[in-house]
Simulated scan of single mutants.
Amino acid sequence: MKKSAKWKLAWLLILPVLIVRGFTIVYPLIVTFINSFFEINMFKGGEATFVGIQNFINIFQDDKIIASLNFTIIFTVVSMIFHVILGVFLALLLNVKFRGKKFLRTITLIPWAMPMVVTGIAAKWAFNDSYGLINDLIRRINPDFHFDWLIHPWSAQLSVILVDLWKDIPFFAILVLAGLQFIPEEIYESAKIDGANKIKTFFKITLPMIIPTLLTLCIFFTMWRITMYDLVYAMTSGGPGDSTSLLAYRIAVEAFTNLNIGYASALALLLFFIMIAFSAINLLFIKKAQY
């Protein structure tokens, strides 16, 4: 078979996949881009009025959106910092040789295996002042303690971040653990012979060897943080006020509750460009790490 025929056959075989992916990704993106320049009234059969960039101007004049943007950035940055720190620490613990480590690795993934909506509902109960698990544990030390975590903006934000960390750090750690398995044992033996202690070994050998893995994981986990919707929906419904309203949750509210399709489309594009920016930053770090 000629080379040109092989290329034609290859394109023919992947064409169905390209059509499906184009329909599920490219087409919705194009429609969202077009809708962002219109004010669409769903109460009048989807009547669309061209408004130009007014939807984008309204974004930066909307206090609710500004609050959502602020919390989305705080949530993503803080969550990823602790994902890396605690994830690497947990991975190192799981990499220690001891009896029962396979069983421990298995049960470590239980929080990650739980659906996010179930986790959010359970967390809503756990942080309740009257009958929640968190305050019950604290009252065993201080019987007079009373605090409703989800009615104060700062504590509600902290609670959402903590629940997100509790759920996803185990999965992050298992993926880092997989990266640790590829570090040759001979390198550690040579470092031990040269008199390097465990701290020096970590910073001179382990960390540099897993940095590409960490940066790659950060791309995916950052995207998941930016687009998170279900945890906030189940746990706080964006409250109190709009203090825990992540941008993805605000898009859903504007689109399906307020039926403001044009405005929601503009917000979706904003979220899309934020994701591109974060991905570009991560890819830049990966490129530097490879050198």
Rank of each mutant, 00 (worst) to 15 (best):
S79T: 14
E189K: 13
G87F: 05
G100S: 03
A48L: 10
S243F: 11
V77C: 09
M209I: 04
V176H: 07
A178E: 10
I66V: 15
D194M: 12
T108Q: 01
A48G: 06
A255Q: 08
I19Q: 07
T213I: 15
I261H: 00
F23S: 08
R99D: 07
L283D: 03
H146Q: 10
Q61M: 13
T72Q: 08
L165K: 00
S155Y: 08
L283P: 01
N70G: 15
G46C: 07
I85W: 09
L207C: 05
L165D: 01
A234I: 02
N95D: 09
V17G: 10
L215C: 04
N135R: 05
I34A: 09
A113Y: 00
K200D: 11
R140M: 15
S190A: 15
L69R: 03
A126Y: 03
G239Q: 08
F37A: 10
F60L: 14
F202W: 07
I161Y: 10
K200Q: 13
F43A: 13
D62C: 15
N55C: 13
A91D: 02
W166A: 00
I187F: 10
S79G: 14
I205D: 04
P212D: 09
I199A: 09
P143E: 11
L93V: 11
F89G: 12
M223I: 07
A277M: 09
P16M: 11
M1K: 12
G87W: 01
L214S: 06
